[in-house]
Design a protein around this nucleic acid. Structure first.
Lengths: 213, 213
DNA sequence: ACCTGAACACCGTTCAAGT
DNA sequence: ACCTGAACACCGTTCAAGT
């Protein structure tokens, strides 16, 4: 009943994000996105020469909609923490993106986040160099944390500890009964593990530069 | 001419790692692994109920062969650094693993590395809790660094900076001309960015616990 | 027990053709 | 300009059958 106007890029991207939300990135196909728009699969190839182009564009939109840039009024430590948790939360909600994080192209939206981050830290007294280091360190921790989260969610690991018999002696020397603490550690949210360490290091960096600030 | 004995798990895993080395994880298929062993694709299903099981087993073997556990004699800082760089190097050499890092199951080999790590740091004076935090933080940075490395290797990002026009004002306030420094930053090895920060934080943690050690 | 061939229900992508 | 249908060369996996 709706009049079919020419479909544009954003219509395909919206449909792709809907498909991803329902069945995950890994089960997105050119055919099922097209089916959702009641269009021949081939129609998409005019806008996206390749499935990867569609995915990259969808990731861009996903990042833009996640709105991970915090309020400008926050002190830098809270700002960084909130930005990191925002990214972590967005990716955790759509875990199926994770396998593709390393293989998709970085786009303008990601660059915009970079600029916000560096701007905030520079204003707080970090050099641009330090700010960039902080940014990439935070991204690394966020991406790594999401990877571990989705990997550890996939299965319990209890039995495996006992079965690691072929470890070299160097390991046995320092060995403790870590099994119980490991279990409780795996229940913690991954972002709570790496992020505090990075922020602590940044705080020390800043204190060293301005001892009496 | 070779007598065909019954193929066992390891034969399939070896073949899978060969295929991965030649064409990458993403182009591994049950069919091309089978073809390499001159066997029907269906023969593999006796050992690996699913392609994912084959991949998980191959990743296990990959980790085991990477031998990332450093010499036990090293001081903890060098030990941690070398372990992290070992993992980073192994994954960088086989970048096609990266997209799967978040989705594959953790196995006994990964657990063995965990134990070595915690053993080393405990011996150096960290609590088990701190050691586990250090381990996961390092893994996060390594995985994140490899993700960024492969992502940034995929394309240059120069043009994108200029085209980010729809960034919120909060960003513009703190904005600097970061483009040039960003470029030089992207040429650095990712592991050199996050790892020093984490190690610095660990050193501070230890110093705080034993001020006069 | 281990392997096989044929078949099913999917893929991404190309191409020539339609309006 | 935009969309289509048919086809190609692949997938993972199931199943019934062979030795």
């Amino acid at each position: 009943m709706t009049v079919r106007t020419a479909l544009n890029r954003t219509a395909y991207i919206d449909a792709a994000l809907e498909v991803i939300g329902e069945v995950g990135v890994d089960r997105l196909s050119m055919r099922n996105v097209a089916a959702r728009l009641q269009v021949s699969p081939m129609a998409m190839y005019r806008h996206f020469p390749t499935k990867d182009d569609l995915l990259a564009a969808s990731l861009e939109a996903f990042i833009a909609r996640a709105r991970v840039v915090p309020d400008a009024g926050l002190p830098w430590e809270q700002w960084v923490e909130q930005a990191a948790r925002g990214m972590y939360g967005a990716l955790s909600r759509e875990l199926s993106w994770v396998p593709l994080l390393g293989s998709l192209r970085v786009g303008a939206q990601a660059i915009a986040v970079t600029e916000a981050f560096v701007g905030k830290l520079s204003a707080a007294g970090f050099t641009v160099e330090q700010s960039l280091q902080a940014y990439f360190a935070v991204i690394q921790v966020v991406v790594g944390a999401v990877c571990l989260r989705s990997s550890l969610a996939a299965r319990r690991v209890e039995g495996a500890v006992a079965s690691s018999t072929d470890v070299e002696t160097a390991i046995r020397d320092g060995r403790r009964d870590i099994s119980a603490q490991l279990q409780s550690f795996l229940r913690r949210d991954q972002i709570d593990i790496g992020l505090p360490l990075v922020i602590a290091a940044l705080r020390a960096q800043l204190a060293q530069a301005r001892p009496l600030a």
